[in-house]
């Protein structure tokens, strides 16, 4: 499976990449929504995009709207990973086409649990490892 991590912080991209590769994902990255659209087009198939909200050039919500306007990307699962916690903003993101929402700061377990809820990994085994579906 392939994941696209969209965050203007290289450090956050590294943190998320480390977790995702640990559960078997191939990871591609982008520093804002506009870059992410180009990476998405060049990196098919992408199974999930994990998207920060507050980014320069094109923010996460604008990216979600842009992706959902492109039928060729209809199978990409979209997860917001952001500090934006206002209910109205969460509703906007979900209404625009995001499937899941994870608030920063998050733990590795929280991210993996979200991936499991989306059916992209199995819940952790007794020994703490996660297995790709």
């Amino acid at each position: 499976m392939k994941a696209l991590v969209v965050d203007d912080s290289r450090a956050m991209r590294m943190v998320v990449r480390r977790i995702l590769t640990g559960v078997g994902f191939e990871v591609v990255e982008a520093g804002n929504g506009q870059e992410a659209l180009a990476v998405l087009a060049a990196s098919q198939p992408v199974d999930i995009a994990l998207i920060d909200w507050n980014m320069p050039v094109m923010n996460g919500l604008e990216f979600v709207v842009a992706v959902r306007a492109q039928p060729e990307h209809r199978n990409v699962t979209l997860m917001m990973v952001t500090t934006e916690s206002e209910r109205s903003q969460i509703v906007r993101a979900l209404a625009a086409g995001a499937h899941e929402y994870l608030l920063k700061p998050f733990t590795q377990d929280a991210l993996v649990s979200k991936l499991a809820l989306l059916g992209l990994v199995r819940m952790p085994e007794a020994d703490g490892t996660e297995v790709m579906v």
Binding site: S9, N54, T82, T83, E84, S85, K104, P105
Partner: peptide, 8 residues
């Protein structure tokens, strides 16, 4: 960014 978001 994360501290500010949580304060907000």
């Amino acid at each position: 960014n994360v501290i500010g978001g949580n304060v907000k």
